[in-house]
């Protein structure tokens, strides 16, 4: 499915060179290389992790997509599959791992719990979806999503990667790196440093 897209010249290739020359754009070949070898981070939190393991096992092979290298180290991975419930005790670690991933990085929220809190949303130790703290690229709902549903989500990530352009890539822009997210603090309840102002005004009340 990919090679035909890759070779799509807007130029005339003379007939004698037609089997030997391919013309493509820098964007396409850059994105083709990246999308065909996304390395997920082995980051299983809960039940969805078991479905992720089944996706990597022999029946629904991830290696066909180039994704069988599941690195436990964030420095060597491209895609963080947040599979399972995100709890307040775990979120500082998730944010720290996200900060440690080098660009280009993507996040896939697998399962209802990572998308939006899931069935445990009302719990006192549960964060309502991982997109409260880190930017999510693809959401895969389900509880748990079957391996075929997860593969569908991974194909959507590949589709997204193929649609990107080098000119607008976040990691090639000049200026300060905006992707560093401040790590939440575990106080009497979870404290998000980006919401400090809101916290001060809400707690101090209208008289402050």
């Amino acid at each position: 499915m990919v090679p035909e897209d890759l070779n799509s010249p807007g130029y005339d290739i003379p007939p004698e060179a037609r089997g030997q020359v391919a013309i493509t754009t820098l964007d396409r070949i850059y994105n083709w290389g990246r999308s065909a070898s996304v390395w997920p981070m082995m980051f299983g939190l809960a039940c969805c992790a078991i479905e992720m393991i089944c996706t990597a096992a022999s029946r629904f092979d991830l290696a066909r997509f180039g994704m069988e290298i599941m690195r436990p180290s964030p420095r060597q991975s491209d895609l963080m599959i947040v599979s399972g419930t995100v709890t307040k005790k775990m979120i500082p670690i998730i944010v720290r791992l996200y900060n440690q991933m080098p660009e280009p990085k993507y996040v896939l929220a697998m399962g209802a719990c990572a998308c939006g809190g899931g069935p445990f949303k009302e719990g006192y130790n549960v964060v309502s979806g991982v997109d409260k703290f880190i930017p999510v690229d693809v959401y895969v709902p389900g509880c748990p999503p079957t391996p075929q549903a997860l593969l569908n989500g991974l194909m959507k990530i590949q589709e997204k990667i193929r649609g990107e352009s080098i000119k607008t890539a976040r990691w090639y822009q000049k200026g300060p790196d905006a992707a560093e997210i401040p790590i939440p603090i575990l106080g009497p309840d979870l404290i998000d440093p980006r919401k400090m102002e809101l916290l001060k005004s809400a707690v101090k009340g209208p008289e402050a």
């Binding site: 939006g116 979806g129 709902p141 569908n152 959507k156």
Partner: peptide, 10 residues
């Protein structure tokens, strides 16, 4: 239908 992956909340 399990092919519900999307770019936003569902």
């Amino acid at each position: 239908d399990y092919e519900l992956a999307s770019f936003g909340r569902n």
